[in-house]
Amino acid sequence: MSVPKYSTGMAKVVNSSLYQHTLGAAVESRIGRIILLASVPLLWLIMLHVGPIYQMLKISLLSHYPVQPGVESHFTLANYAIFFQESIYFTPLIKSFIFATGATAFTLVVVYPVAYYVAKIVKPQGRSKALLLLLVPFWAGELIRTFSVIMLLANRGAVNVLLREIGLIDRPIPMLYTSFSLGFGLVYLICLYMLLPLYSAIEKIPSPLLDAAADLGAGPFTRFRRIILPLSRDGIVSGCSLVFLTCIGVFATPMLLGGPNTVLFPETISSFFHGASDKWPVGAAFALIMLVTALIAAAIFMRLVGGSKRRAI
């Protein structure tokens, strides 16, 4: 077998008998190649991408976990039934959905014109700079962005102090630890997840199409409704799903910006893991309820908005 001569360190490795008899031999055969290529990825995907969800499902159907000596754990659906029995359990989920839906809708309306501006109005040379400016806060991270919202909305935060200086108010408006601050914080946290999908969808719309429509007498509003909106549908669907699913799973922001009236579902779930340890199955069941309802909501949305691809083309 002729092995070409390299003049590098790799040649020594490749030509060594250890390599020739192990990896080198393995990649020569088709089966060996497939095993090398597929083993670790498949193991990882099944163990760690599917495994945790599967274990969560399994434990949500058990009466006791972690298993204690002397306690028999058996199959039960009771953990799911608990959810429907008490309003302190299902109201947080409803609130989570209201906040996530509201934040998603609001973000879409606010970010759409911005994405359109960068994709179609800014000249191609300036686009990456215009995008970069939008991405700066993105590097701040979840916690720091949430924290910075407090600076704006606190009783002695910028907004209240400014309003008092102008003389519009005598005493601060309590904004922090309310639904308002939570909604504001959520939008601030996630608005950039909306930007990139919208931007890439709008950028793909051929500009001559818009010029042609304008030549044929379509005004800005008609062009938007008949061309831009249908052709950016993919971006709207993926942006909204991403924002919605992120929003539903946010844990720190409601704890820092919300008040006693804005307990969201993640906090409810978390209480089963940090309280008495035998409530894990209930927590697992609740997490699954949340996952399934959130995915169903996202799927319905995709179906409603994105299902009619033929019409868009």
């Binding site: 969800i53 274990q55 992120t246 844990f251 779930i269 978390s270 697992a284 997490a287 949340m290």
Partner: peptide, 16 residues
């Protein structure tokens, strides 16, 4: 894992 909301991912990993 990119689609599963963060909280649920965390809980499932804790159980795992």
């Amino acid at each position: 894992p990119a689609v599963v909301p963060g909280m649920i991912s965390a809980i499932s990993l804790r159980i795992f």
